[in-house]
Amino acid sequence: MAKKKENNFESSLARLEEISAQLESGDVGLEDSIRLYEEGIELAKICYSTLKDAELKVTELKKQLEENIKQ
């Protein structure tokens, strides 16, 4: 199924998990660790505020679209 846009929240969370795993692995040098950590904290902040400020959106698919299906 084609996606119209990237799921930012989901990809941010996935990136967080990735960063966590990389930090955990211990294979990353100090400079890279610091860079990853900073990126992670920034992502965590964004995820947090995105979730906090979100409001549910409801859309109704219109009847004229339904007409297309009758073909």
């Binding site: 969370l13 660790s33 610091i34 950590y37 992670g40 904290i41 965590a44 995820c47 947090y48 979730l51």
Partner: peptide
């Protein structure tokens, strides 16, 4: 669940800070 996600995010922040201290 939003609450689980909040928990996850703050857990990440905490855990990774710890991890960073450990690395340092």
């Amino acid at each position: 669940n939003k609450d689980d996600l909040f928990g996850y995010i703050s857990e990440f922040s905490y855990y990774n800070s710890q991890k960073m201290f450990e690395i340092l």
